[in-house]
């Protein structure tokens, strides 16, 4: 082996202690991720993003699950965030492509972009103009048109047929600074979800709880997904105040989190006290725990003090 001119600083090695993958309970198997089989639609293993605008800080990360890394499949989760300058609002969307849809990674990407575009259009008239039913219908139409193109079909496929190709969940909404914090409005289709983390107590409040007593004995295999649009859209409005963080994530994050009172909840409560490096969020989100090998996506949004301090 030749000697490198500049040997790496041990502290910088990606396998060094700081960047070693975080393990909770029993780790999953260790292996080098494999590339997706199809190179047609380039899609990175992981992505992360972060910025602040006005009194809102945003961080997001999306990491390919170990199952997809092992079996040469692309990440099916997507996330996007943007700032609407004239409305002074943050737009966000998180989507999780349904595994048994053939091109769900395209579905989740399209759903995020279409939702962000529709929200931006509505925000031209201010936050009061937000109409999530219209946004969901627009996303549904976008997915169906994409399916029509992919299928080379003469007519627009119905939601069920388009769903076989592109089915995806979606959580999307907008947030804007208010006198006491950040006002948020959001909606969801499917089992991606949102929480408010109280950083002082380390407690999570689920914004889309299931009805009490609805816990199933066995894991269900039913999910609502776009391009189907449910008759009643799940929506929430809330104020996120300093000391709280809005979290929007796919079930790859939500399932291991549970109600947040375990080791996974503690991990994120420890690392989400303030908006840190987006790369670090991606690293934390990529924790290893046996059988939790789905894609994971998390978008976090903090209210900042008026002077803009509070970021790391």
């Amino acid at each position: 082996m030749p000697h490198p001119a500049f040997p790496p600083d041990p502290a910088d090695l990606d396998r060094g202690p700081r960047w070693r993958r975080k393990v909770i309970d029993v780790p999953g198997i260790e292996f080098e991720p494999r590339p997706p089989l199809s190179a047609e639609d380039f899609r990175p293993d992981s992505e992360c993003d972060g910025w602040s605008a006005g009194r809102v800080a945003v961080r997001s990360a999306s990491v390919r699950g170990d199952r997809h890394r092992y079996y040469k499949q692309p990440r099916q989760d997507s996330v996007c965030s943007a700032f609407h300058d004239s409305a002074g609002a943050v737009i966000f969307a998180v989507a999780d492509g349904v595994s048994n849809a053939e091109a769900s990674e395209i579905g989740s990407t399209d759903a995020c972009r279409a939702a962000a575009g529709a929200l931006a259009n509505q925000l031209e008239s201010g936050p009061g103009a937000l109409d999530f039913v219209q946004v969901a219908r627009y996303v549904s139409g976008t997915l169906r048109r994409r399916a029509q193109t992919m299928l080379n079909a003469g007519s627009l496929p119905g939601p069920a047929d388009a769903g076989k190709l592109l089915a995806t969940t979606l959580v999307a909404g907008a947030a804007w600074p208010d006198r006491d914090g950040v006002s948020v409005r959001l909606f969801r289709v499917g089992d991606s979800s949102a929480w408010v983390l109280n950083t002082e107590q380390g407690q999570y409040r689920h914004l889309f709880p299931s009805p009490a007593g609805d816990e199933e004995v066995l894991v269900s295999n039913e999910v609502t997904a776009l391009p189907g649009v449910p008759e009643t859209l799940e929506q929430q409005s809330l104020l996120v105040v300093p000391g709280q963080v809005l979290l929007v994530g796919t079930d790859g994050f939500g399932l291991p989190l549970g109600d947040g009172d375990g080791a996974v909840g503690a991990l994120f409560a420890r690392h989400l006290v303030s908006p840190g490096s987006p790369l670090w969020l991606g690293h934390v989100l990529d924790f290893s725990r046996e059988t939790f090998d789905d894609d994971r996506t998390l978008l976090a949004l903090w209210p900042l003090p008026p002077d803009g301090t509070g970021t790391v």
Binding site: D77, R289, T291
Partner: peptide, 18 residues
């Protein structure tokens, strides 16, 4: 994604088994 929407309501789980 996992097909099943109730998991996020439950206490933290160690995994999903068959």
């Amino acid at each position: 994604m996992r097909l099943g929407s109730k998991g996020d309501q439950m206490p933290e789980k160690r995994g999903v088994l068959l």
